[in-house]
Design a protein around this nucleic acid. Structure first.
Lengths: 121, 121
DNA sequence: CTGTTAATTCATCATATGCTTATATGTTCA
DNA sequence: TGAACATATAAGCATATGATGAATTAACAG
């Protein structure tokens, strides 16, 4: 017979107390979970993914990206701001031109892991 | 002097034609980009992340997860549906109880890569 | 069959998101 | 200075999303 859980609101439960403790111990704190969700949210939009794909190859100015993706400059600027806030891209200014580039080596790895998942299914 | 790009709408561009070609060649097709965005969108919510964290430890029934996360069962069921559609979780039915578990070995890797990113900054 | 429990589905609401247009800021150069 | 250009920002709109409560389906026990 299974040991009953301490989750009172659930009478069908068969999970053990040790599993409950383990989950509670390994679950990141609220702030980390929030940041993690924010990070993945950023990857959850095709426009931003396209921008990252472009920046995988080279740094680019805003209008280069806009032209390459065939989107207007405002929309790109808007999304670059999101990417900047999540520290996925960085920028340098040269006169009136702002060049954006990747700010993290893990980006491509996260991206590639995602690709592996969808390609397998 | 830099070779000028073929992106006409942009007069400040300094990126080379070969970069443009490379981006266009390596950029996944629209459908893949869409699926990829959908996948990451799923990770972009703390409730779903918590569910995945719970399932990292053990398979669980819906009410176990609900009790563990202190949320109502309808909300959990709703999110499990999303996770099921993206094939991140699978389920088996035993009588009236439905047990959910992870359906992909990459999930934890994607999750951990995300953690590395936010921990470093 | 009836009542109970587990899970799902539906309708609704509040909030968040992404894009557009218009405007503002900032830089260069004639 | 002021015109042209690059970028950023603001306001507004349509759509998407997540949670809730109520209703529904399904399995089982008496």
């Amino acid at each position: 017979m299974e040991t009953r859980t301490n989750i009172e609101s659930c009478s069908c439960s068969v999970i053990h107390e040790e599993v409950i403790s383990k989950v509670r111990d390994t679950m990141p704190d609220e702030e980390t979970l929030y940041d993690l969700a924010e990070l993945f949210k950023v990857f959850g939009d095709t426009t931003r993914i396209k921008i990252l794909c472009a920046l995988f190859e080279s740094e680019m100015c805003v209008c280069d990206i806009a032209a390459l993706l065939d989107m207007n400059q405002s929309a790109i600027s808007h999304q670059l701001r999101v990417l900047k806030q999540t520290r996925l891209v960085k920028h340098r200014k040269d006169g009136k031109v702002v060049y954006y580039s990747l700010d993290d080596e893990h980006i491509k790895q996260i991206f590639d892991q995602g690709l592996v998942h969808i390609k397998e299914k």
